[in-house]
């Protein structure tokens, strides 16, 4: 069994003295783990970092084996290390992909979106909004997507200001009525409308965080969402 693909490293751990086990989010093969022989060497240290974009060749005798990766660097993101906010963003992306994605299931849309987001971390100051929309896309890819197209009560397409924490469906102010206090505020940025203020971003993260925690409950088993995401939200709140 063997294949070649392009991907982004999302987790690295030492395996014995000289090897490493890496997890790569690949374009065609999804989240995939494998051993890198010599992965603990100084030569490979710069390459085998979370966020590195790499070309991988995977080989195993049987498809169910973990297999061995050979890794070639395509684009390293060590420049992010000096930027604490971008580094926190990178950690949150990698931690969520590690926790949320099932192994060996392709998510081509999410992969393209992830690559664009990683590029935005390096070049653009507006990436927190992109990150928020990326979390919404992650929910969709996992099958927990929100239905924000029309009000669940009135059917209206305008004036959507809440989302139901139970159904994930949007609700208008008129439709919410006395139930408004039990609903989550829906910021316009999650509807793809305009730039978000810090408050709107926090509201957006509360919405995606709620559905991520609920959807990933079988994986998290009572644990909170990854600490890297909480760290990112803390940093964004101080801006």
């Amino acid at each position: 069994m063997d294949w070649r693909d392009e991907g982004c490293i999302i987790a690295v751990r030492a395996h014995g003295e000289s090897a490493a086990i890496i997890e790569v989010f690949t374009a065609v093969h999804g989240r995939h783990a494998g051993v890198v022989r010599g992965g603990a060497s100084r030569r490979m240290a710069a390459v085998l970092q979370p966020g590195s974009q790499v070309a991988v060749a995977w080989q195993a005798r049987l498809s169910e084996h973990m297999g061995v990766f050979s890794v070639e660097p395509l684009h390293l993101r060590s420049g992010l290390m000096a930027d604490r906010l971008a580094l926190a963003g990178l950690n949150a992306i990698c931690a969520l992909l590690h926790v949320a994605l099932p192994e060996r299931v392709a998510h081509p849309l999410l992969w393209r979106s992830t690559m664009a987001l990683l590029a935005a971390l390096e070049y653009g100051p507006g990436w927190p909004e992109e990150y928020l929309r990326w979390e919404a896309m992650l929910l969709e890819e996992l099958g927990f997507g929100m239905d924000l197209g029309r009000c669940a009560v009135t059917g209206a397409r305008e004036g959507l200001v809440y989302v139901s924490p139970k159904t994930g469906r949007a609700v208008s102010a008129a439709g919410a009525g006395d139930w408004a206090a039990r609903l989550l505020p829906l910021p316009a940025v999650l509807l793809g409308q305009g730039r978000a203020s810090a408050e709107e971003l926090a509201q957006g993260f509360a919405v995606t965080g709620h559905f991520l925690a609920r959807g990933l409950e079988p994986v998290l088993q009572g644990r909170p969402l990854p600490a890297a995401r909480a760290r990112l939200l803390d940093l964004l709140a101080t801006l």
């Binding site: 710069a46 390459v47 660097p73 684009h75 390293l76 993101r77 060590s78 420049g79 290390m81 000096a82």
Partner: peptide
């Protein structure tokens, strides 16, 4: 050297 190290050295 990798791109990031060269960038850091230049900065």
């Amino acid at each position: 050297l990798d791109d990031g190290t060269i960038g850091a050295a230049l900065r």
